[in-house]
């Protein structure tokens, strides 16, 4: 009798009970996102089964006959495929390296600016391109990089007496243009993380260095740069997952028949093979190759980030 009285008047116990009762709400709140992820992430993953079938739209996933690794055999014996992997790797890796390098230098230079007004001014301008779409920028770049009197070529011809450069029609210049414009678009934005890391460096380190007679350059060399190494390692390793992610949004509007050999990347190839030529199973195999490699690289990247810089994402 007495125990039951205590139980019902114990507020904490009642709180726990009611909480158990309302836990179904937590599942309910997750329901919409679970359904959407099932539909648009897991269903396509299951749909990868079509890479092992002779997929026909009319027969669907269930009715198409299985052909084993046929399409992977075709894929790995297509010479184009290796060129495309090389191109993709070239764009992805040079963009990662130059972006990291340039945003690092930019962050160091911006950090030396004492006038707050000027700092804000620079930041406002250099962050802006990140938010503009590649469609818009391609429209502008096609116009100003035009070999036939585009703004940049006018500049080169009139000021330096150079021959006009076929930026978007010559394979090597195309690669140069893609990497340069990508770095141009993103350097400001990717410097934000580095700037944040700089501002979190312990000021007493600089004071100590100054006491020891270090000038500004030596402080940068021996305090700032070493303090930034962990964050740079994290950023670099986390990018490992995107070694096969050349910038489709950028290359797609800009590439053309003249530069195909040096410009074609996995995603543009998949678009043409799959949606224009309708080789569905073959393209699914291409996509699966990319997904598997990317997944492995992401896992390696996360592991490395944890080992080298003790950084955990989850």
């Amino acid at each position: 009798m007495r125990t039951s009285l205590v139980k019902s008047s114990d507020p904490y116990n009642g709180y726990l009970k009611s909480k158990l009762k309302i836990n179904y709400q937590l599942h309910f709140l997750l329901l919409p996102s679970v359904v959407l992820i099932l539909m648009f992430s897991y269903a396509p993953i299951l749909g990868l089964i079509m890479a092992f079938q002779d997929f026909k739209v009319s027969k669907g996933f269930l009715g198409s006959p299985f052909v084993g690794l046929k399409y992977f055999d075709i894929l790995f014996s297509t010479p184009d495929f290796y060129q495309i992997i090389r191109n993709t790797f070239f764009f992805a890796s040079t963009e990662i390296i130059f972006l990291l390098l340039f945003s690092f230098i930019f962050a160091l230079l911006l950090n030396e600016v004492r006038a707050t007004f000027f700092k804000r001014f620079v930041q406002t301008f250099v962050y802006l391109p990140h938010f503009l779409s590649w469609v818009i920028l391609s429209g502008i770049f096609i116009e100003i990089l035009n070999v036939d009197g585009g703004l940049v070529n006018q500049f080169l011809v009139n000021l330096f007496g150079m021959k006009p450069i076929f930026f978007l029609g010559d394979g090597n210049w195309f690669r140069f243009t893609i990497v340069t414009t990508d770095v141009w678009k993103e350097f400001g934005y990717s410097a934000i993380v580095i700037l944040a890391a700089i501002s979190s460096i312990d000021p007493s380190l600089y004071e100590a260095a100054e006491m020891d007679g270090a000038n500004r350059w030596q402080q940068t060399l021996f305090v700032t740069i070493p303090s930034l190494i962990p964050i740079m390692i994290v950023v670099a390793t986390l990018k490992l997952g995107s070694v096969l992610d050349a910038n489709f949004d950028q290359i797609f509007p800009l590439y053309n028949g003249l530069v195909m050999e040096k410009a074609d990347i996995i995603d543009t190839y998949a678009y043409r093979m799959g949606l224009l030529n309708l080789n569905f199973s073959f393209t699914a195999a291409v996509g699966m190759f990319k997904s598997v490699v990317s997944f492995v690289m992401i896992v390696i990247g996360y592991r490395l980030a944890y080992k080298l810089a003790n950084y955990r994402i989850f």
Binding site: S33, G47, F61, G274, S291
Partner: peptide, 17 residues
């Protein structure tokens, strides 16, 4: 959720779905 972020079916299966 995390697995769905790290691995995807790619263009064509998504299109078919």
């Amino acid at each position: 959720f995390v697995f769905a972020m790290l691995f995807n079916g790619g263009l064509i299966p998504t299109y078919m779905v």
